[in-house]
Amino acid sequence: MMAISLLQSFLQQEYTSNSIFLTAISVITFLFLAYLAISEIIGKHLQYSKFWNVNSSAKQQIKLSSTTGMLILYTPAFLASLASFWVFPDGGIRFMMAKSAITIHFFKRVLEVLFVHKYSGGMVLDSAILISSSYLFASAAMIYIQHLAQGLAEPVIDLKYLGVALFIAGIGGNFYHHYLLSKLRGKDEKGYKIPRGGLFNLVICPHYLFEILTFIGISFICQTTFSFSCSIGIALYLIGRSYVTRKWYLSKFDDFPKDVRALIPYVF
């Protein structure tokens, strides 16, 4: 009972008649993301980046350029979150923070696709649609659930300003390490290299670490069951993805530093 009471102090009041439905959505979303994490670890990868053609079945699937695929991933979620300012123009400071953070996150990703990233692989259409739909659903649902929470009791422990700080640190660190990755290749180079600089000297996926921090920040701003289920689920997926990414580098580069971890410096 004490643990439940402590947990409830971090959450906004549940949504009366909608609470069972929203709890079910939160559980299903978490289980779906956890399933994707397990799939990555056992070799059933979402087919983009280094693993875009890892499965032989991909030969019969529609392939996209990485730029096109990545724009499909992020643009619908960005447009939906941007539209929320017109659909739900009113609301308190927490609601405005939530809409703004989600919109800024996906807008940043679209800009990175257009102006920062240098790609060498491709993406399978099925994976692009799955990931894009997941991002669209998660962003729209977080905003809508935040809208439903308007006027209900605020959490006993207010985390929204801490959430803003974590969000800023997350998108800043994520962008910086994406920038370092973009500088690995020359204009016409397509091959992979071992990343250097920043936290790449300690972990192979610091951009994932800061992505997790970004979503933790968003969940702290929202403080709803659904937002926390999303951030935990995304963290699990990126943990799985970073694990197989490190294995990939170890298999491709004999000089890959063995002390460089997957995601968390000195730990994992």
Rank of each mutant, 00 (worst) to 15 (best):
M1C: 04
I4S: 07
L7P: 01
L7V: 02
Q8N: 11
L11V: 00
Q13L: 10
S17A: 09
N18Y: 15
F21S: 12
F21Y: 13
L22H: 09
A24W: 02
A24Y: 02
T29N: 07
L31R: 00
I41Y: 15
I42K: 15
L46I: 13
Q47G: 00
K50C: 07
F51L: 05
F51W: 10
V54W: 11
S57Y: 09
A58M: 12
A58H: 11
S65E: 11
S65V: 01
L73E: 07
A80I: 10
S81R: 07
F85W: 06
D90E: 10
D90M: 06
G92P: 00
F107Q: 14
E112F: 00
L114F: 08
Y119Q: 03
S120I: 08
D126I: 03
S127A: 05
I129D: 00
I131S: 04
L136I: 08
S139E: 12
A140N: 11
Y144R: 02
I145Q: 06
H147G: 08
L148H: 00
A149D: 14
G151H: 01
E154G: 04
I157H: 07
L159N: 08
L159A: 07
Y161E: 03
L162W: 13
A165P: 10
A165C: 11
A165F: 15
F167Y: 08
I168V: 10
A169M: 08
G172W: 05
G173T: 00
Y176D: 03
H177K: 09
R185N: 02
D188F: 04
E189S: 05
E189N: 08
K193F: 13
P195A: 00
C205L: 10
Y208P: 06
I212C: 13
F220H: 00
Q223D: 11
T224L: 13
L238R: 15
Y243W: 14
Y243M: 14
V244P: 13
R246A: 07
R246M: 05
S251Q: 12
S251M: 05
D254T: 06
D255A: 07
V260Q: 03
R261N: 07
I264V: 08
